[in-house]
Design a protein around this nucleic acid. Structure first.
Length: 319
DNA sequence: CGAGATCAAACGGTCACCTG
DNA sequence: CAGGTGACCGTTTGATCTCG
């Protein structure tokens, strides 16, 4: 900047004004400064700018797994919004481990991110309080966090209710629920939606038709249910990985799965799903974050995004 | 009065150097 | 040897000044 000022024959301050499009630079001077910038190949040093301004124009994103398409779609949407606000995104995978989530978040904070979008792995977020006090903004996405902050969720219970009701309408009375561990908020919510759908339809709750646990065990769990005297005639799968695990283990039951996935429409029959809007989750979370960063105050918001039932064949099979 | 110059003080951390 | 001091990195910002 000093060199540009010397080359253009103006003061440092004038270059700064020009670079930041501030008023007070005459067109003639601006032209000389622009020419000097062009000639010297000057680009503003962002580190120095950060040093002075206190804002780093970066945000941190903690998701469960960057390799999981559901979360990478969230990540992409967050990135798009961030870019529009002149920010870059650091992202990391918690792997569903609260300790790792905390390490990532604190590492981002140590690099002085302006804000955070977090898919919580744990339920205790007291470790965030000092950071929030220091002015870092935080938004929870996909699941609620352990403190009162802006949160964006999918309507998990409502989506599961719609999916199970769809199976009931097609004549099923005994519907299995294969879900992830209920310690995970979304899994518990979907189970709640399943139960409500059964009771709304006047069907009995049968605990032997419910299995929760890691997705890779879903196939075996369904095998056990099918070996019982009064087996289920349809399956509601609690997330995309469970749906895929079931299909991989050779099962083709009447089925509705939570979460859409690639090629679901190309199978025979097509797999009916309750689709979430992961891009919507990411976009909404990032937009809330940038609103806070631009000074919006007021109580924490909680936004719930609708899900969409996508019938493709597997959910319309009769008993 | 407006355009622009000049000056100094930050920002947060690192590092060389000095003191006791 | 520990601990303290001050310069330094590049930019922004505000105060103040100059000149036509």
């Amino acid at each position: 900047m000093k060199d540009v000022a010397a080359a253009a024959g103006v003061a440092l301050k004038t270059v700064s004004r020009f670079v930041n499009a501030e008023p007070g630079v005459s067109p003639a001077t601006a032209e000389r400064v622009a020419a000097a910038i062009e000639r010297l190949g000057y680009r503003r040093n962002e580190s120095a700018r950060v040093l002075r301004r206190g804002r780093t124009a970066t945000i941190g994103l903690v998701i469960e797994d960057v390799a999981d398409p559901f979360y990478s779609e969230i990540g992409r949407a967050v990135e798009d919004v961030a870019l529009r606000h002149g920010s870059l995104v650091f992202s990391g995978s918690s792997g569903e481990d609260p300790r790792r989530e905390r390490e990532l978040v604190l590492a981002f904070c140590a690099r002085r991110v302006d804000g955070l979008v977090i898919v919580p792995a744990g339920t205790d977020h007291d470790y965030l309080l000092p950071e929030l006090d220091a002015g870092v903004a935080a938004v929870f996405a996909d699941r609620p966090g352990g403190l009162d902050a802006d949160t964006v969720l999918s309507d998990n219970a409502g989506g599961a209710h719609a999916g199970v009701t769809h199976l009931i309408r097609h004549g099923h009375r005994r519907i299995a629920f294969l879900g992830d561990r209920t310690a995970i908020f979304t899994a518990a919510e979907r189970l709640r939606g399943y139960r409500r759908a059964l009771s709304d339809a006047g069907l009995p709750a049968d605990g032997t038709l419910i299995a929760t646990g890691p997705p890779e065990r879903a196939g075996a769990a369904l095998d056990r249910m099918l070996a019982e005297p009064d087996p289920p005639t349809a399956v509601f799968a609690g997330n995309g990985r469970i749906t895929v695990a079931l299909l991989r283990s050779g099962h083709r039951p009447p089925l509705v799965g939570f979460d859409d996935f690639e090629l679901a429409d190309l199978l025979t029959p097509g797999v009916s799903v309750v689709a979430q809007d992961p891009a919507g989750l990411g976009r909404t979370a990032a937009e809330l974050l940038f609103r806070r960063l631009s000074g919006e105050t007021g109580p924490a918001r909680r936004i719930e995004l609708a899900t969409r039932l996508v019938p493709r064949g597997s959910g319309e099979l009769r008993p």
